Simulated scan of single mutants.
Amino acid sequence: MTLRIVKDEKAYPSKGIVSFTSVIGVALLGLRCGDVAHIKTFKGEFDWQIFTVSHNEKKTII
């Protein structure tokens, strides 16, 4: 899965574009390759391992 983390007004979760203030965005910010994020959402609990991180003004891929 590829996610892009953006400002609130640019978020479009169904397309993998999440806000940095969302539950998922907050959990992923600051993580590095190999880290595991434990995320609790209204749909359940998930563990996501980070494989790549790209910092780019057009997209951040996690």
Rank of each mutant, 00 (worst) to 15 (best):
M1G: 12
M1R: 08
T2D: 14
L3I: 11
R4A: 09
I5K: 08
I5E: 00
V6E: 09
K7I: 04
D8N: 10
D8G: 02
D8C: 02
D8K: 14
E9C: 04
E9W: 10
E9H: 12
E9Y: 14
K10M: 13
Y12C: 06
P13F: 06
K15L: 14
K15Y: 12
K15H: 10
K15S: 10
G16F: 03
G16W: 06
I17P: 01
I17N: 02
I17F: 03
V18D: 00
V18W: 00
V18M: 07
V18E: 11
S19Y: 05
S19F: 03
F20Y: 11
T21F: 09
T21V: 05
T21R: 13
S22E: 11
S22W: 10
S22N: 04
I24D: 01
I24H: 03
I24E: 12
G25L: 03
G25N: 06
V26S: 06
A27F: 03
A27N: 09
A27H: 04
L28M: 12
L28P: 01
L28A: 01
L28N: 01
L29A: 08
G30H: 03
G30Y: 01
L31Q: 02
L31A: 02
R32V: 00
R32F: 02
R32K: 15
R32I: 01
V36K: 13
V36C: 08
V36S: 04
A37E: 10
A37G: 10
A37H: 02
A37R: 01
H38K: 15
H38D: 14
H38R: 15
H38L: 15
I39L: 05
I39Q: 04
K40H: 09
K40Q: 15
T41I: 11
T41Y: 02
F42Y: 12
F42M: 15
F42Q: 14
F42E: 15
K43C: 06
K43F: 04
E45A: 09
E45Y: 03
F46C: 07
F46R: 09
F46W: 14
F46Q: 10
F46E: 05
F46Y: 15
D47T: 12
W48D: 00
Q49T: 10
Q49Y: 02
Q49W: 02
F51S: 08
F51C: 05
V53E: 08
S54A: 12
S54T: 14
H55Y: 09
H55P: 03
H55W: 05
N56Y: 09
N56R: 06
E57K: 15
E57L: 07
E57M: 05
K58L: 14
K58F: 13
K59S: 14
T60M: 11
T60N: 10
T60I: 13
I61M: 08
I61F: 00
I61V: 12
I61G: 00
I62R: 01
